[in-house]
């Protein structure tokens, strides 16, 4: 039932792009001419509505006492009950804290390391060496999080983990640390794992931005006697600014997406209080406990906040006269 209802109002909106007074007629005439193009795209537009827009209709669940056995249209309405429960649940605030903390750490660490590495790669003079370093640094990005989490937990293991062994040999610690057993370490571990996995990959876009910088600027600076560090600071970094701003905006839109796989796979009962983020919360309440309404309410909260963040960041960039998304 519900499947056929949502697409209809949106499906009629293509009348919009009509340009002339004879709008609708012209539109149908064009459609007739472009039968092939329509045939090539419309099946996938239908796919898109079913798989991407129909779930949006499921948001109504958050305002109902959803019972899976009944059809979606015959549920009992519950008003804002689930949202009220959510915002009075201390666990939810812990989860929110974890989400914000981890995505903030990932954002800052991710940006700084990728920009830094891109600049250093750009300064390498032996191009073959640069190529090899780049290829190696991309490798972790292609591994799955399942593999990466396995490698991380092996490196952090109490007895045989390389981190403990190194710290021990350097005399920095006396007893081996159970890294994944101490809740306070979890955010840092996720941040480090994220950097390890993605830093190489994230340099690609910055390196592309660096190649767009006019080489004459470097030559002029060299003649004026600017040092390597000065050239980086006054030419390379400002040259990367538009790309940095755009990526920052895009990432602010994902501020509540602290990632799911890394946390889920490295989480254990001991570090759970610092590991559980919004996505895991939704999964736990929704799929494991069957409280679909509450889980959906948390999901809506996430999407709405992300949207607000994205638009604010975008308009901020606009006001500051920077490049922006839309």
């Amino acid at each position: 039932m519900s499947l056929q209802q949502t697409p209809t109002p949106v499906g009629t909106s293509p009348k919009m792009p009509a340009e002339r007074p004879t709008g609708i007629k012209l539109f149908f005439k064009k459609c007739k001419e472009q039968k092939a193009l329509l045939l090539m795209s419309l099946p996938f537009v239908i796919w898109l509505f079913i798989f991407r827009y129909v779930p949006l209709y499921g948001w109504t669940m958050a305002f109902q006492d959803f019972r899976p056995a009944r059809p979606l249209l015959e549920q009992d309405w519950a008003g804002m009950k689930h949202f009220v429960f959510l915002f009075t649940d201390p666990r939810f605030f812990e989860v929110l804290r974890n989400t914000l903390a981890m995505s903030f750490i990932n954002l800052v660490l991710g940006f700084v390391t990728a920009i830094g590495l891109a600049i250093l790669l750009n300064e390498l003079r032996n191009l073959t060496f640069k190529r090899i370093v780049q290829t190696i640094s991309y490798m972790p990005h292609f591994l799955s999080w399942v593999v990466a989490a396995g490698l991380v937990s092996a490196a952090l293991s109490v007895e045989s983990g390389i981190i403990n062994i190194i710290l021990n040999n350097l005399g920095l610690i006396e007893n081996n640390i159970m890294w994944l057993g101490v809740p306070e370490y979890f955010w840092g571990i996720i941040g480090a794992a994220d950097v390890w996995k993605n830093v190489g990959w994230n340099t690609i876009i910055y390196l592309a931005a660096i190649t767009m910088i006019d080489t004459e600027q470097y030559e002029a600076a060299e003649i004026d006697g600017a040092s390597r560090l000065q050239r980086i600071w006054y030419i390379t970094l400002p040259g990367m600014r538009p790309v940095i701003v755009i990526l920052l905006i895009m990432n602010l839109g994902y501020i509540l997406e602290s990632g799911f796989e890394a946390q889920y796979l490295l989480m254990n009962p001991m570090n759970m209080d610092y590991a559980e983020n919004l996505d895991i919360f939704v999964l736990r309440y929704g799929i494991n406990m069957g409280n679909f309404s509450l889980a959906t309410a948390a999901g809506i909260f996430k999407t709405v906040v992300s949207f607000i963040f994205l638009f604010s960041a975008n308009s901020l960039a606009k006001r500051l006269g920077e490049a922006r998304l839309f």
């Binding site: 919009m16 472009q34 798989f51 779930p55 939704v282 799929i287």
Partner: peptide, 27 residues
Amino acid sequence: FVLKKFVTIAFVLTMYLNGGLIPTYLL
């Protein structure tokens, strides 16, 4: 293409809007 804009926007919007885990699961 008459629907160029419509199709593009319909797809791009889903980058920022998604129903989330539970509605998708039920679908």
